[in-house]
Write a protein that binds this DNA or RNA. Sequence first.
DNA 1: GTAATATGTGGAACAACGTTCCGTTTAGTC
DNA 2: GACTAAACGGAACGTTGTTCCACATATTAC
Lengths: 221, 221
Amino acid sequence: MADSEKTPGESGVPDAPGGAARHLRADAKRNIDTLLEAAKEVFATSGVDAPVREVAARAGVGVGTVYRHFPQRADLVAAVFRREVDACAAAAPALAAEHPPCEALSAWLRRYTRFIATKRGLAAALHAGDPAFEPLPAYFQQHLGPALESLLDAAAAAGAVRSDVDPNDLLRAVGNLCLAGSEAGACHSERMVDLLIDGLRYGARPPAAADSPPERNDARG
Amino acid sequence: MADSEKTPGESGVPDAPGGAARHLRADAKRNIDTLLEAAKEVFATSGVDAPVREVAARAGVGVGTVYRHFPQRADLVAAVFRREVDACAAAAPALAAEHPPCEALSAWLRRYTRFIATKRGLAAALHAGDPAFEPLPAYFQQHLGPALESLLDAAAAAGAVRSDVDPNDLLRAVGNLCLAGSEAGACHSERMVDLLIDGLRYGARPPAAADSPPERNDARG
DNA sequence: GTAATATGTGGAACAACGTTCCGTTTAGTC
DNA sequence: GACTAAACGGAACGTTGTTCCACATATTAC
């Protein structure tokens, strides 16, 4: 097997084989950025099946430019997805710095909800078997899992939420809540997620006291 | 809501509004049949995304003929699906008449497995949100559920299999087995389904003895 | 600054697809 | 056999993903 295979880098940028990435011209870098931003908006509006031309038009570039940076349609979709995952993961430390642990956690979960909600058609695309989408679920879990874990740990340490929740389980649960009932509208998803967040609060144990049973009377928020 | 909505009939035939179906010309009836058969083969070979032209060519008709009977591509797919569900359901009584209960059951499950295995891409299509596909899951369950139930009941009455299995659960389980690991090849699916069938046999209770505890040493399938 | 050149760009052009259209053929009826 | 409504075939349309290449531009060397 020749390893000349395409190995898309971490973020949205197409490829950076090895360490020394081939120098991208400044305008190219700018265009890639514009394209990803445009694609994100278009996909959110018209679903991930939106035509490439529409993305190109919104970005103000020709289709040739799109295909220069993203050899296949699916590469563009995957790049947008990765970039949004990165942005969502990056929001975690920022929120943690600005808010108390429990607020940071719930704010992040709401942000994550919004992210999932703009992914109309992506679930179907993922299951369609396109090889370009195959590594996405792992990317998802590897980046979002730790981000959520840090928030969960902090909130649990502060005694604001229970401490027996696996971050990846929670990610998946929220994801399913938002995608499964996509017909019922976004507000339904949000309400369900709020419910889930309240569930986290239930059975929280106070910060210092280590082994006294938690104050689980009938906490309901 | 105007009920002039298209209400595709039971089997593969496009529509028969009300009771008196408009008389189809003999050649039309023949072509519909040929088309469904051709589409079944093409979809099995190239997946449900196969082009309409390919189906038309295989049936030896023009595309115009396809679209006369199936106004949309999805209608053709749905019709093929329903027809195969019907055929699969119809196989149950036939198998029950020719084989002892347990053999009939396992033979039918294998036939069902084959049916699922030829549905490459259909799972994705179902989740893609096309309105023409929306009623399919219900059709599936309503027709296949009772068919399997009768076989299960007969086999359980004969003491060949356990009696605590819900037919719809079993349908879904086999379906997931075959669709989820579609990359691993068909033989893997068949082996897993065989395992499932053996699981049914385990813990069967002899026909007459009504209330002696079943021979459930350490029931685990 | 200017020239040289690799790099990037735009959009016409291609192929494949779903779908529509309409001139022609054919089954049903008298 | 003649008539008519139904059905047929396939060319043609609009939309898509993708390729191609003449042209433009950033970068480098001088």
